[in-house]
Design a protein around this nucleic acid. Sequence first.
DNA 1: GCAAATGTACGATGATCGTCGTATAATCAT
DNA 2: ATGATTATACGACGATCATCGTACATTTGC
Lengths: 107, 107
Amino acid sequence: MSLYHPAADEIELPAVLHALSDPQRLRIVRKLNADPEPRPCGGFDVKVSKSTCTHHFRVLREAGVIEQHQLGTARLNLLRRADLDRRFPGLLDAVLESAATETAAAV
Amino acid sequence: MSLYHPAADEIELPAVLHALSDPQRLRIVRKLNADPEPRPCGGFDVKVSKSTCTHHFRVLREAGVIEQHQLGTARLNLLRRADLDRRFPGLLDAVLESAATETAAAV
DNA sequence: GCAAATGTACGATGATCGTCGTATAATCAT
DNA sequence: ATGATTATACGACGATCATCGTACATTTGC
């Protein structure tokens, strides 16, 4: 089972925005950005079931936001920052900073 | 019938990203940005029915992306640039530039 | 007053979404 | 081998979405 990843040039803006428009997925991406080491799916404080988690990681991967690599039973997740920055310069940072200020304002 | 608009501080990131994740709505926002004059709903080259158009404008308005003001039978649409820039600095521009490069790449 | 123009309201429809539970596969440690 | 760990697959559920057509409301112009 090989994991589908869109090529860098195939990443589409609506798909990326949709992937980032879910709070759970946004939380995942923020964590992945704050701590850029490859991280298994379990290493996120997401408050949904495992199945739902799998779903969210797939949405992020198929949109081109993250990369997933199998390592034993674990699946390591990695932000595709370089690809995203090349394709949509400034977008990821703008979203991440927006998420940070929103959290700050809410707390 | 008064039109609901979220206050600037109530604009939420997931709602904005979701609003911008639809190609039709993204086209509307791009037009509104390129030509910042208030513009009735009919003044957009969107390829969907009138009812669908009404729906998209409502999604954009309720997310806080646009402002709508009734003027006779027409409803004037306006980008809430100042509010968006204050709440989520750089986000709107990043999305708009991403949309522009994506279009350029596709053509 | 009447017709045209602008846009909404109200369903309806098929698609997608986010969520879950259970069952299953694959690896690792003992 | 056994058991624990990690994560998927599959099917299901209710909710939301994008779309449409038809009917209606309001204003504008003659």
